[in-house]
Computed example of a mutant assay.
Amino acid sequence: MRFATRALGVAVGSAALLAVGLTPAVAEDGHVYVRVLTYPSGGTSGGESDADLNFTAARSVTYNNWTINDTCPGDGYRVIARARALLSNGNYANGTWHEDDGTCESDDWGPYSGRELNTSANIVKAGVQVCVDLGAELKCNTTFRDNPHT
């Protein structure tokens, strides 16, 4: 009887961990969010971008509900973002740059859906790169999700 009670306790505990999501990381489609700040000393100026990723194959990912936002207070710099993927050969594949071409008070770029990134090599992980265009250089940050097909 002790064994049965202990086994039941382990089963219940395991089910509880699964219910709250304390499981090993599993690659899956889903949401990505990334933010970059203009000034490292603080403040909220910069930009952010987010999208829902749908990995359709080992070499293809679709971006849905994708937005880019220039965050306030206004710093006078434009915010750009692009789709970005790490490939199995160690190289990166990049989509076209998109811009929130207004001020921080303007509407976001997007949301856009059905934007695809197709590559000639397997995609290990894909995500969004957002940058503040400082003129002489870009200040960027990137967030990725693993591809469940690779």
Rank of each mutant, 00 (worst) to 15 (best):
Y77P: 01
W109E: 07
S45G: 13
A85P: 01
S88R: 13
K125V: 03
R2V: 12
Y63E: 05
G21S: 08
M1G: 15
D133T: 06
G47R: 01
R145W: 04
N69K: 15
L17C: 12
G21P: 05
N54S: 15
L134S: 02
T103L: 12
A19W: 08
Y112W: 10
R115E: 15
F55S: 02
G110K: 02
V132Q: 04
G90E: 08
W97T: 06
G42P: 08
A51H: 02
F55Q: 05
G30Q: 06
T38Q: 09
C140S: 05
L18I: 10
V132C: 03
L18V: 13
N91T: 15
G13H: 02
D101F: 12
L134C: 03
V132G: 02
C72G: 15
N141W: 04
R115C: 01
V36F: 01
D108I: 04
R6A: 14
A136T: 13
Y112Q: 13
R84H: 10
T71M: 06
V34N: 02
H31D: 11
G90R: 12
L53M: 10
N118F: 00
D29A: 06
N65P: 03
A11N: 06
A19N: 09
A7N: 13
V20L: 12
A16L: 15
V130M: 04
H149I: 04
D50W: 05
D70V: 02
T103Y: 10
L134H: 12
D146I: 00
D70W: 01
G9Q: 13
V128E: 00
Y92S: 07
N118K: 14
G74K: 01
V32Y: 05
G95S: 06
A83L: 11
T38R: 08
T38S: 14
L117S: 07
R35H: 08
T67F: 09
P148F: 08
S45H: 03
D108H: 07
Q129A: 07
E116W: 02
T23I: 15
T119G: 04
K139C: 00
L138E: 07
A121H: 13
A25L: 12
A4T: 10
Y33I: 08
G102E: 07
N91I: 02
N147M: 08
D108W: 03
T38I: 04
G76V: 10
V10Y: 14
A136W: 09
V10F: 14
G102M: 06
R6H: 09
D146V: 01
G110V: 06
N65L: 10
S45N: 07
L117T: 03
Y33N: 11
S88L: 09
Q129G: 01
S113C: 06
Y63K: 02
L138I: 06
N147G: 10
T23H: 08
V79S: 01
V124F: 03
D133E: 08
H98F: 14
V32C: 08
N91P: 00
F3T: 13
S88P: 02
Y77S: 11
E99R: 10
A27F: 09
E99C: 05
G9V: 09
T5P: 00
Y112C: 00
E48P: 00
V36Y: 03
N118V: 15
T5S: 13
G9E: 13
W66T: 07
Y77V: 03
S106P: 03
N89P: 06
Y92G: 05
R145G: 02
P24F: 08
V10A: 14
I123V: 13
S41K: 08
T143A: 15
